[in-house]
Design a protein around this nucleic acid. Sequence first.
DNA 1: GATAGTGGATAGTGGCGCTATCCGTAGCGG
DNA 2: CCGCTACGGATAGCGCCACTATCCACTATC
Lengths: 250, 250
Amino acid sequence: MRIGELSRRSGVAIPTIKYYLREGLLPPGTPTAANQAVYDDEHLRRLRLIRALVDVGGVSVSATREVVGALADNAPDLLRLFGIVHEAVMPKRRPDPGSPTWTTAREQAARVVDDNGWFVHPESPSLDLLADALSALTSLEMTTILDHLDTYTSLAQSLAATEVGYVLRDPDEARRLELVVLGTVLGEALFGALRLLAHQHESAVQLGFASSATGVGAGLEGADDGRHVEPAVAPRKGLREQGVTDVEQR
Amino acid sequence: MRIGELSRRSGVAIPTIKYYLREGLLPPGTPTAANQAVYDDEHLRRLRLIRALVDVGGVSVSATREVVGALADNAPDLLRLFGIVHEAVMPKRRPDPGSPTWTTAREQAARVVDDNGWFVHPESPSLDLLADALSALTSLEMTTILDHLDTYTSLAQSLAATEVGYVLRDPDEARRLELVVLGTVLGEALFGALRLLAHQHESAVQLGFASSATGVGAGLEGADDGRHVEPAVAPRKGLREQGVTDVEQR
DNA sequence: GATAGTGGATAGTGGCGCTATCCGTAGCGG
DNA sequence: CCGCTACGGATAGCGCCACTATCCACTATC
């Protein structure tokens, strides 16, 4: 296929594809003439991967280049790939790591890991990330949250065990590498969305609104002022069954 | 205090503070003369909150304005605040919600929520977020991950129950509002960092590297080539215990 | 041979989060 | 009262990022 079809099938605009080619995110097509080239399904797949990382995972274009580069390399080192992905999900804007508050939080981060018996490189950037969160919380005197650190760590460990498990258990080498990337990046997006939805549910339940039509997602909904018309979902607690059915307006 | 001290005490540059004032993130100081004003501890606290949301939480300046606006309002509606925060954490760049793949994923998202008996507004933006992740995963044929959706949902619910619990249980009304914001935004950062650290640990353990000095964070570490000096972490598996205890320095 | 599409290169755009500069006034030590 | 620094307010500019637009010579297809 040529670039037009690639664009149509991926939903990515031609100039954007050209941009990704320039930036080295996408390997060049195989040339058929001086100024013609064809692309294959690998390109299509790669393009979808790029969009997933950029759009869903919020990974920057340059970090995406590193990640897909590592995937394409004969770099079958899972641990190294993990490291690259972890770098890729680091936010660009971070609090000043120079302040004494931060340094203290950084020590605390090391202690948290230690207390859980986690085996982690002592200079892992993720420790800095943890320190960022801890220092922000302590500087705002929100230690209430830190009282539940154990819950956070044990849930994080459960999730990680599951995720690492399904990555390592996959029989296909190439897929395993992709699973590292997608499990880390899209797994975060997936869990994040579910967490927000669960927040809505839990807040409704714990506030006793569980059987009214009011949910937490109502936030900024256009002009309707607060309470709103009956949503199509009938609150029934029975799990499982009943497919898509009444959820289909929008 | 005046702007210079505010800057020194918060670590935020004066022009940035002025910018936040212009943008309405920070309320103006109380004027003492035609062109002089003083700021109080509330301003300092607000400023720290802003930096936490922007730097740690990755929230945009405009979304931060909405959030702090809602906090300052006599808008004591927890559910509405939840909604505003959920809007605030939506990424700016999202996949095209027009494609048929996405629409299917969106239906699937509704089904997931339904199957768990979650009580969620049927037009919650978080459902779109979930659909983004689901559609990316299915378009990449990574249904391996989706096989573990139940794990994701139940862990998300556990986390949410804890978080909503400590928010609602706080006796102080104003703090409760802040906890909604910080629990959602910084809680995500906190959990995300812990998840990455747990990934490192779990991958080391499940690959059998648990007692070597090699961890997953080694990824891009400068010039040191692979193996490195003994980390300070003694791997011991005992989770739990040790509560907050040593969490109290700032 | 007309028309649409292609690859390659270069330049431009829009948004975002600041940052720099200027100006006239206020505070404050002497 | 002088002189200095700091302040507040306003306006303009900057740097980065992820595209997007335009141009060109050439190719594919009808």
